[in-house]
Amino acid sequence: MSAHATHGHDDDHGHSHPTPRTYLGVGVILFALTALEVLAYEVGHRPTWPLHALVEPMVVPILLILSAFKFVLVAGFYMHLKQDSKIFTNLFVWPIVLAVALALALVILFNYWVKETF
């Protein structure tokens, strides 16, 4: 969320190249998101810490969402997919879709479907 708020002004400029300021801002956000990831991990497995009961069941979704945010930021800004040709975006996104499908399929095949039925 914060990523979009801070960098909303880039959309107004359309295809103009980002400036070092933008890059630096993205870097700061990436760093903050990483810190949040580690924080979620720590809170999630330390019963004495505040909010533990709330965070513990949500650690995995939190981590996945934060990691996806970081992924999109690096791909969009540092790899210039935001202003580059859509062809490049397609060359990246479709293999990722297939990659995620492969990982999900294997996890489901090995952990769920078999156990439910035998």
């Binding site: 297939l98 499908a101 095949l109 479907w113 078999v114 439910e116 039925t117 035998f118």
Partner: peptide
Amino acid sequence: GFGVWSHHMFATGMGPFA
């Protein structure tokens, strides 16, 4: 073609869903 690979493996007992 990427979503059919396990039809080579019906004999491995993947369960009815798979």
